[in-house]
């Protein structure tokens, strides 16, 4: 069995800085993509991939691996950077994001990118996929766990709640949803465009165990992942409050940085902050 590395918090924070620097450079090079939504997910991803997941980058299809599904597929630059730093493919590949012939498509493609569990990018679909993986695990009596990351804007998709109902009905306690609650969607603030609040009450109503955390606090993130694993008989959702564009002052909490890549000059300013 392959275990996670279990780094201390300082090391995790250092990894996160490396990932954020990759994200900024990748998007500047690509000339398009989603910096705000990628940067808000970084700490949740780093904690998961370095300290929690049982996975084997040399054997991405290892049948007993824990699974991670990125339902908010537009945040894939962060996931690609984490996968590359974990050894799923060369870090040099990150420079090819969104280019013709690249293994790193604008939204995740499982057929060409090692470590991607499902092709996606169309919002609302990942939790259902995660449920299918979780049901297969129960059927096969395997103890792997399945994690699905969703955005808070994504919660407006009705299919999320179909999946929430079904996961609870099937007592999928091997399934853990992570909500990257950065408070923003493409057209503006969640509360202005389509409020998904109060998020925790909705999930409780659907029969889920709910953990609310600061999505940039490693101690809180790690303890939430541990708690989720211990909850039996129902699925767990971690509602993680995050900051869109986290780490780059001029991107933080700015609607405009949802889907706009930084210019060369902006990327340099961002990288100067990410040290």
């Amino acid at each position: 069995m392959i275990k996670s590395q279990c780094l201390d918090i300082k090391s995790l924070e250092e990894r996160a800085m490396v990932i954020r620097r990759h994200v900024v450079r990748m998007l500047a090079k690509a000339g398009s993509g989603h910096p705000g939504s990628s940067l808000s997910t970084v700490d949740l991803l780093v904690a998961l991939f370095y300290n929690k997941l049982r996975h084997n980058p040399q054997q991405p299809a290892w049948p007993d691996r824990d699974r991670f599904v990125l339902s908010k597929g537009h945040a894939c630059p962060a996931l690609y950077a984490v996968l590359a730093e974990n050894g799923y493919f060369g870090v040099d590949k990150l420079d090819t994001l969104r280019q013709f012939g690249s293994i790193l498509q604008g939204h995740p493609s499982m057929k060409i990118t090692p470590g991607i569990e499902i092709s996606g990018g169309s919002l609302g679909q990942g939790l259902s996929v995660g449920l299918g993986i979780a049901l297969a695990g129960k059927l096969d009596k395997k103890d792997y766990r399945t994690y699905v990351m969703l955005g808070d804007g994504e919660l407006a998709e009705g299919q999320v709640w179909e999946a929430a109902m079904a996961a609870s009905h099937y007592k999928a306690d091997n399934l853990c949803a992570i909500i990257d609650q950065n408070g923003l969607q493409i057209d503006g603030f969640i509360h202005e465009i389509m409020s998904s609040y109060p998020i925790p009450d909705k999930w409780r109503g659907f029969g889920w165990h709910v953990i609310e955390i600061d999505g940039h606090n490693y101690k809180a993130i790690l303890s939430a992942y541990d708690e989720a694993e211990k909850i039996k008989g129902k699925p767990t959702v971690i509602v993680a409050k995050t900051i869109k564009g986290k780490g780059v002052s001029f991107m933080e909490n700015q609607v405009d940085w949802h889907g706009k890549s930084p210019s060369k000059e902006e990327a340099e300013r961002a990288l100067a902050e990410l040290k």
Binding site: G126, S128, L131, L135, L139, E162
Partner: peptide, 28 residues
């Protein structure tokens, strides 16, 4: 019964649940 999943009146979720099962080697 253990290999049959009634997903209720929710076709979108059903399709993607089948997709998830298929990623784990099931013929859904």
């Amino acid at each position: 019964p253990e290999r049959f999943f009634n997903m209720g009146v929710a076709e979108a979720n059903m399709m993607n649940t089948a997709a998830g099962l298929a990623t784990c080697g099931k013929i859904a």
